[in-house]
Design a protein around this nucleic acid. Sequence first.
DNA 1: TTAATTGCAAAAGCTTTGCATGAAT
DNA 2: ATTCATGCAAAGCTTTTGCAATTAA
Lengths: 139, 139
Amino acid sequence: MYSITRTFKNKGLKLTPQRIAVYEYLLGTKQHPSAETIYSALIEKFPTMSLATVYKSLKTLCKVELVQELNLGEGNFRYDAFMEEHAHFQCNHCSTVFDMMNVPTDRVMEAVSGNESFLIESSRLYFYGTCLECQKKNA
Amino acid sequence: MYSITRTFKNKGLKLTPQRIAVYEYLLGTKQHPSAETIYSALIEKFPTMSLATVYKSLKTLCKVELVQELNLGEGNFRYDAFMEEHAHFQCNHCSTVFDMMNVPTDRVMEAVSGNESFLIESSRLYFYGTCLECQKKNA
DNA sequence: TTAATTGCAAAAGCTTTGCATGAAT
DNA sequence: ATTCATGCAAAGCTTTTGCAATTAA
C-alpha cells in the first residue's frame, strides 16, 4: 500500500483500483502467478477488468520495480512482488514455483563478478527438481 | 557427428539432413540463436527446409539432451549445444548472450541443496549487465 | 481540466499441430 | 515395406497495440 502510493506519486503515475488490485494480489500470494491467473482471480472483484489491463499494470509495476517478471521456460511469464534478490525453484512434477531463501545470491554474484569481464547488474537463478511434497508421494 | 549418430540410433530416431544441419549449426556458433535465426541461416543450404522442421528438430535434440533451451525473458527461446553445466550472461545493451565458464554451477547447486528440502536436478543461471564491449563504448 | 488509464477488439509474435508427401531404416 | 520425418498451412497461445470512452489528479 504505502510503497505503491509513494512510488506511483513520485513517478507521476496514476493509482487506479486495477493497479492496486494486481499489486495486492501479488503481495498476497506465493504462487508466482501468470497474467492469466491474476486476471482470473481478480475478475470476481472487478468484473469489468480486462486481461490487457492486467498486462499493462504488470508492465508498469515491473518498470517501477515493485514487481519482477520470471521466466521459467514455460512459454509464459510469472510475476513476483517479493523484490529481495532471491532464487527460484520449480518442481518438475507439480510445476509449483518456490522462493529459495537460502541461496546467497549476492555472494554468488560477487564470486562471479570477480572472474569475468562482465559488469553484472542483476540475476535470475532458477533451479529445477522435485519438491518435498512430490518426494513424499513418489517415495 | 559421432554423438548425434550414436544417440539417434540408440533412441530409434531417424538421422535426417535437417536434424544434422540444426545440430551442427548450434555446435558451430556461440550466439545462442533463436529458432528463427537458425532457420534463416540454414535456408541457404536447405532451400526447402521449413521453420516447423527447425522447431521439431530442436524439440527432438532437447529431448535427447544434445541441446538445451534457454529463456532469458525475451519472449522467445534460444538454443545451446554446449551441454556442460554453465551459466549465461546477457548484455542489457547489445543483447548478446555469453557462456560463463567461471561460475561453479555444481558448487552452487551443492550449497543450495544442503539448505533446502528440494531435490535439485538441474539449474538455469542467468546474469544480466554490461558486456566488456559495451563497457568500453560507454566509458 | 487535462493527461493518463481502461477496456475492447484486433493484431502481432512465437510455437505447435494435422496431414499428405517424401525419406530413412 | 514400414515407420518416421518433412513441409505446408492453419491454428493456438501469450502478449502487445490502437483508439474511443473513462477516470485520476
